[in-house]
Simulated assay, not measured.
Amino acid sequence: MNIKQYLDSTYLKTAQQANLTEMENTKVVQHFIQEAIDEDFKLIMIRPDHVKLANDMILKHKSKVLIGTVIDFPNGNSDLEPKLQQAQTAINDHADELDFVINYEAFKNGEITLIKTEIIACAKLALSNKKNIKFIIEVAALSNHQIIQICALIKNTIIANFKEENFANIFVKSSTGFYTTINNLPNGATLETIILMLENSNPLPVKAAGGVRNIDDALTMIQLGVKRIGTSVAKTIADGHVSNENY
């Protein structure tokens, strides 16, 4: 097994969040992109405004690294039309995969029709452009019961509206890595939440994002059935070391 082909190397901080200038932050992004190219990771996950940069670098090196980006990140509470517009821009800039933050607060408020409409429209846009799509459910914002419910809702909505041949291209993803928890509780993937996601998202694939910091954790997730792992320490994991980073 090639662990690198499960890793989505991730850098999603803005310059302000990283306490850097825009130029300094762009250099960090370039480092992550170059590292993904050099290490042959599955994908580089970056913010939409850096997709063109990634595409230029990947083309220059004739690399097979995929480009992923986040949509309506990190809160997922925009109206549908801005989500779709942002996604279309990313598609035009040659993103390969689109990770939509689902409107999990609307889901918690019982706005199920809104969530279904969002799922269908976003998936149609992605699939019609031959892109993978991932729905980020933000597990740290949900109870275990809500994780089960939202995974089942995504799964059932996809099954009812799309062909089986598309299922492998539609992921359920655990976390943004930016959710603020109380008492320093985990804000990313845990074994408990991933097991719930796997049990209730099947046949849709699952991506574990956040909280996977070493090779043993990564292998455990893969053995459980996870198809992708989102992490800001992909090289550390691939090299068999341990990181103290949160994502």
Rank of each mutant, 00 (worst) to 15 (best):
118 E>P: 00
135 F>W: 08
186 P>H: 11
62 K>S: 12
192 E>L: 14
206 V>Y: 07
182 I>D: 04
78 S>Q: 14
195 I>C: 12
166 N>M: 10
29 V>S: 09
62 K>R: 12
16 Q>H: 07
203 P>N: 08
131 K>I: 10
5 Q>V: 00
243 S>H: 05
147 I>P: 00
149 Q>Y: 06
51 V>Q: 05
11 Y>D: 01
2 N>I: 08
27 K>H: 12
4 K>R: 14
42 K>I: 05
58 I>C: 04
122 C>K: 03
72 D>Q: 02
88 Q>M: 13
148 I>Q: 12
224 L>R: 02
199 E>H: 06
51 V>H: 05
165 E>I: 13
138 E>C: 06
9 S>E: 13
12 L>P: 00
109 N>K: 12
149 Q>M: 13
126 A>I: 06
94 H>F: 15
227 K>Y: 06
40 D>Y: 09
120 I>P: 01
52 K>M: 14
185 L>R: 13
50 H>F: 15
110 G>E: 10
212 V>A: 07
161 N>H: 14
52 K>N: 08
99 D>N: 12
201 S>M: 07
60 K>F: 14
71 I>D: 07
204 L>S: 03
100 F>D: 04
56 D>E: 14
201 S>C: 08
55 N>A: 14
211 G>A: 10
229 I>W: 06
31 H>R: 13
27 K>W: 06
72 D>H: 02
176 T>W: 07
28 V>K: 13
239 D>G: 01
241 H>Q: 15
173 K>G: 04
79 D>C: 05
171 F>H: 04
202 N>Q: 13
9 S>W: 08
191 L>M: 09
167 F>V: 02
183 N>Y: 11
20 L>G: 02
116 K>F: 05
45 M>S: 13
232 S>D: 05
154 I>Y: 08
